[in-house]
């Protein structure tokens, strides 16, 4: 497989024509950043299947939509199943150049949609499933999801979440699907390369995008990219790809395989209001979790 293009060049300019200015996202929202990269890779040759999530609102109101790509809005639990149907219909009709992309949040993927994701993965449906992870139910007002990290405040965990984040990428690796990757809105070129790789393959492909949410995580909208990068630089969020039975840590995360190079996780936590309730004891627990995660990733990447 080819090496991912990571030079800091502009994304192909037609990305601008696909994601249209004037959407309904909050200022500083990470979702349009990621959607822009998706548009740059697939252009109009994609059908986005979107369950209930922030993007249902971001794309705007009837009779308009803020994206020059086909979109099917679907009920919460059903993105992977609808995408399966679309994909099977296109293949039956002999349409091969249109990619079916399920575009769902963490709630629609890790919680209510997890059965349909698992089903489609097990059947190895020819779809790309993208989970953009803002780590809570943001559209309904910041409620905890299974993807909310330990220690984070949400409106339903006023003193911080007790449990660890559900690791969807690992769950999908366990399904034996052709392609699993983690990504971040902080690294659009890395995401671009991963989408290109996914595009060149067939079968069930899963990409998990870390997407810091300014109102939900309680930070100033200008820091979306800074927070996303800090998650990687502290080693809390690790970018990798898994295919052909091999896990490869991606460029932006590679330096942090060495624990000494990782920034202190306090830097990531203190920039966000949602971790204001966190205790020192819990910070130590999180550090332990980070080390355990890296241990697994390092083992897998051999």
């Amino acid at each position: 497989m080819s090496k991912i293009e990571t030079r800091k060049l502009p994304l192909p300019h037609d990305a601008r024509d696909k994601l249209l200015p004037g959407d309904a996202a909050c200022p500083g929202c990470p979702i349009p950043i990621a959607l822009k990269v998706v548009s740059a890779v697939f252009g109009e040759k994609a059908i986005l299947v979107i369950p209930a999530c922030c993007t249902s609102v971001i794309l705007g109101t009837y009779p308009g939509q803020a994206i020059k790509t086909s979109v099917i809005h679907v009920p919460f639990a059903s993105a992977a199943a609808v995408a399966s149907g679309v994909s099977q219909a296109l293949r039956t009709r002999g349409i091969k150049d249109v990619h079916v992309i399920a575009w769902a949040g963490d709630g629609g993927t890790a919680d209510i949609g997890v059965a349909s994701v698992s089903g489609a993965a097990e059947r190895n449906e020819d779809i790309i499933y993208i989970m953009y992870d803002n780590e809570a139910y943001m559209n309904t007002g910041i409620q905890r999801s299974s993807s909310t990290p330990r220690g984070a405040w949400t409106t339903t965990t006023p003193t911080g979440k007790i449990e660890n984040k559900k690791d969807m990428a690992r769950i999908l690796i366990a399904h034996g699907v052709p392609y699993v990757a983690t990504a971040s809105v902080g690294y659009p070129h890395d995401l671009y390369g991963k989408l290109q790789r996914a595009r060149s393959m067939s079968g069930f492909r899963f990409i998990h995008i870390h997407a810091p949410c300014p109102p939900g995580w309680r930070f100033d909208p200008q820091y979306t990219v800074r927070v996303a990068k800090l998650a990687v630089e502290t080693g809390l969020w690790v970018l990798y790809e898994y295919y052909d039975g091999k896990l490869t840590v991606s460029g932006p995360s590679r330096p942090y395989m060495d624990p000494a190079k990782r920034k202190p996780i306090e830097e990531y936590l203190k920039i966000q209001g949602r971790f204001r309730v966190i205790t020192d004891e819990l910070i130590n627990e999180i550090k332990k979790y980070v080390n355990e995660n890296w241990y697994w990733i390092t083992k897998m990447s051999r």
């Binding site: 249209l20 004037g22 009779p63 308009g64 939509q65 803020a66 020059k68």
Partner: peptide
């Protein structure tokens, strides 16, 4: 498959790309 519009032009829940869907943001 043949796309045939309903005879009385029923309002369907379909959307098309437009700049400024949420107004001048």
């Amino acid at each position: 498959v043949k796309v045939v519009k309903p005879p009385r032009n029923d309002k369907l829940p379909l959307t098309r790309p437009v700049i400024g869907v949420a107004g001048k943001t």
